[in-house]
Design a protein around this nucleic acid. Structure first.
Lengths: 241, 241
DNA sequence: AGGCATTTGTCCGTATGTATT
DNA sequence: TAATACATACGGACAAATGCC
């Protein structure tokens, strides 16, 4: 068991749900759960609310809490949640495949005014421009162009680029980049895309671009990722309210 | 003011943030807010948590609550949140442009086993198959293929397809389809795509496909939407935890 | 149709823990 | 070290929706 009450409840419930312990697709009511786990109802509610936001369960006032059948049949895509796409550039892992990185460009430039705006920079700030090609076992799948203010990582060097910038941030700043604002769209591939990603002329790239934030809200990197179209499938549970 | 306390707080804070009332990019602390609004601190926390999940603010323990500069500079993309993509097929509205619908196909079929699984059907259930072309002022932008169990909407007729199925559900079942599980990816366009969406051979489609749920969790429709690549830009705030 | 038990939603107030400054 | 500010958790009260009898 971990440390936090509501997280314990979540992982325990997930386990039980997937193990098929609730054959009627219905969870016990909140008060019973509170009693079972020997916690307050608020903590149960907190756990259930989070699971509801993730799409694992549906709650219906006056009726009860029900399991999303999709979660039972296809647990994997839920674990694949939004999250796995965040550190896409650094954390991408396909079972058993080894990630590689080829640095295409690395320099310090003056940011455009748009970049200044997005990264919240003053006119005298400079940024690194980093272009990297990402591969899995010699199979290229992504061209990543990133812009990072030098004032955030003054000592960034070429060697760090070959492994994980996120890990470097973790160790250097003791911060994680756990939030981002992303736009996702598709485009016809340019001839450069075609060369680097081994695409045919009619094959597109999927583009994921946006801003990564540190925990404290500082915009830390603007990144554009151009992916071989076969390598991006973005799964998301949408919940209006 | 509306009815719910925490929602009132959210809309009031959004207003004030965007009006630039917090010049230091920092919100008052939770206790002050509770006092100002004359509510409990829990309600303030609830409001702030929601805003934090939406990416509008960042909270930092021991320090305070801070405004995401991006929200100030570009409020629009935040309002464009995930939500606006949900009822994409029915709710799509571009300023001043009139949506049209052309029905390409409408029949009742036996669902594939995959569809049976996704829509939680028993072997004897049938589904409508509905293919529609969506346009804005004679400009086609989307081919939508939808599958709906007939047992959910036994009286669905061709005329309803020309307007909004979601509105029909609202009136008929008194339910809204406010949740969905979606996958987003890109593909080279087929010749049919090219004909219907007026695409060049090298131009792709963006595909958004997945399952819509009713409020009570019933899977209600499987839908595949093939969009002219210029018409899909999916914005999302990603928040790991 | 009406009433009642069940179940989740909303909100309050309090106590204690933990990270930041 | 002390003050500040958010995080976690408890428990209770009442409201609102559902479903069954």
């Amino acid at each position: 068991m971990a440390e936090l009450v509501y997280k314990n409840i979540i992982s325990d419930l997930k386990e039980k749900i997937f193990a098929g312990k609730f054959t009627d697709m219905k969870l016990p009511d909140e008060r019973s759960l509170a009693e079972q786990y020997n916690v307050s109802r608020s903590s149960v509610k907190r756990a259930l609310n989070k699971m509801s936001n993730e799409g694992i369960i549906f709650k219906k006032r006056g009726s009860g809490t029900f399991i999303n059948p999709l979660y039972l049949k296809n647990e994997s895509i839920f674990n694949y949640e939004e999250g796995s796409n965040l550190g896409i550039s650094d954390n991408f892992r396909l079972k058993g495949k080894k990630p590689q990185t080829k640095i295409l460009d690395f320099q310090v430039i003056k940011p455009t005014s748009e970049l200044q705006r997005d990264l919240f920079l003053s006119p005298e700030d400079f940024v690194y421009k980093i272009i990297r090609l990402r591969l899995f076992e010699d199979e290229p799948f992504m061209i990543e162009t990133g812009y990072i203010p030098i004032k955030i990582l003054p000592k960034l060097s070429r060697t760090q680029l070959e492994s994980s910038i996120f890990a470097y941030i973790q160790s250097e700043l003791n911060q994680t980049a756990s939030k981002s604002f992303m736009s996702i769209y598709a485009e016809p591939s340019t001839s450069e895309d075609q060369n680097l990603l081994k695409l045919k002329e009619n094959e597109p790239v999927s583009v994921m671009e946006g801003i990564f934030f540190l925990d404290n809200g500082t915009p830390f990197e603007f990144s554009q990722m151009r992916l071989h179209f076969k390598y991006l499938k973005f799964n998301t549970f949408i919940n209006l309210d």
